[in-house]
Amino acid sequence: MIIFDKVTKRLGGKTVLNEVSFEVPKGETFVIVGLSGAGKSVTLKHMVQLMVPDSGTVRIGDDIISAARGTELERMRRRFGVLFQGAALLQWLTVFENVALPLREHTKLSEEEIDRTVREKLRLLNMEDAMDKFPADLSGGMQKRVGLARAIVMNPEIILYDEPTSGLDPVTSRLIDKLIENLRKELGITSVVVTHDLHSALAIATRIMMIDGGEIVENATPAEFIQSTNETVQRFLESQYITRRGAWEKGMEKHV
């Protein structure tokens, strides 16, 4: 579905991605983990051409998105929904208007149909009551849920999540996790999640890839990932109190 072929990106004289190659299969929840500055968000941005690689290609199915321009790029981007780290809601629009924006811009739906679709998506995220509020009146978690409603309102094939649970309380984090999982199970949506939160990653991922210093150090199923012998992976697991011997076992029963 998403294929990175020897992608290299340099920013400010530093190599952020160094000949990175991997594939995200259709219908999977692919989680990218790593330390801050490892190149996770840069990888995500290449998938929707918010960044262009210095060398290598990024393909979405048969489309080479890294080389696309104009209307071709717009067509490819419509296959995606993106939840940004800070939700990135337009501050002068209400919650309803934010979620309705892609529908109003790209479809010929009547206002009644738009109203119904937006309410349905907001209900899915328990945000229907906040429909008339402005983003500034919402908490960080609520903004993320609205951002997610906007990301799924056009029923995209692929959803990208940039740190979907960062800054959220554990209850809201699990709600978002559950939603990502449901989108895969019920609608077969391909998801790519960038996160620091390994607990969340292990709960939702069908595959986990770790990036460090612009290179892939591990790309495995969750079960294989926690058993990895790679030192960087082990240090990362231990930093979140997850060890190979199973100090964190509860959520892993389904994988091990």
């Binding site: 717009e74 981007r77 990135a88 337009l90 924006l101 811009e105 790209h106 906007r150």
Partner: peptide, 12 residues
């Protein structure tokens, strides 16, 4: 705050 990027990926 990535709102411009959000518009771009929404093809707006």
């Amino acid at each position: 705050s990535e709102e411009i990027s959000a518009l771009e990926v929404m093809s707006i």
